[in-house]
């Protein structure tokens, strides 16, 4: 009996360490050719007091988002090797693939860890000729039903724009997000 417990522990440890996806994020975080940004949920500046019970649950289920990206520029003239590396890491047996899209203009994948009712992590990957971007969304028991309350709680959020600046600049430049004029102006200031 004791031996079994020991084995389970060893297996658990091994499987924790051996996640190609987590390794990839850790590695690229240190890589000068990559950009990395860790966004704790607190930076979004969502005021808790005015939230409904469900909105609170939704907001509290998210801990942080880790973004890494590589752009094609004068230094990194070809990012296809990174894309291949990323795709290889996404074959991680600790995660389940939800969706894969491959189009002439780009590709993307969505993976998750946990159960469908209580997701611990979402992994998003998007790549096209000039940009590779990956996000690791970490939380506790995230539920699909939280998505709408979460978005609605963002309406009166006061994000810490100073801290978010590097991220927003990238999103704006690459036109990943269709920012409105007001948001763009606030970045230029």
């Amino acid at each position: 009996m004791r031996r079994i417990v020991l084995w389970v522990l060893v297996l658990a440890l091994v499987s924790c360490q051996d996640s190609p996806i987590q390794e990839f994020f850790a590695q690229k975080q240190e890589d000068p050719n990559f950009n990395s940004f860790v966004l704790p949920a607190s930076l979004l500046g969502i005021a808790q007091d005015s939230l409904s019970e469900q909105q609170k649950e939704a907001v509290n289920s998210l801990n942080k988002v880790h973004l890494i990206w590589q752009e094609k520029d004068s230094v990194n003239t070809d990012i296809s090797a990174s894309v291949l590396q990323a795709k290889a890491a996404l074959e991680d047996p600790n995660y389940e693939t939800m969706m894969k899209v491959q189009m002439p203009w780009g590709q993307g994948q969505v993976l998750f860890k946990g159960t469908e009712d209580a997701v611990d992590e979402f992994i998003l990957m998007g790549a096209r000729d000039s940009l590779l971007i990956m996000a690791r969304i970490m939380g506790d028991n995230m539920h699909p039903k939280y998505l709408m309350p979460f978005l609605s709680s963002m309406n009166n959020a006061q994000p810490d724009m100073e801290a978010l600046k590097p991220l927003m600049m990238m999103l704006k430049e690459k036109e990943v997000l269709p920012l409105n004029q007001q948001a763009k102006d606030s970045l230029v200031e």
Partner: peptide, 21 residues
């Protein structure tokens, strides 16, 4: 080839998301 592959977990989550609305 352009491809879209959607697995069971995605459908489960989509249906839970829709059901909450």
């Amino acid at each position: 080839v352009s491809s879209v592959v959607v697995n069971k977990s995605m459908f489960m989550m989509l249906s839970k998301f829709e059901a909450a609305l």
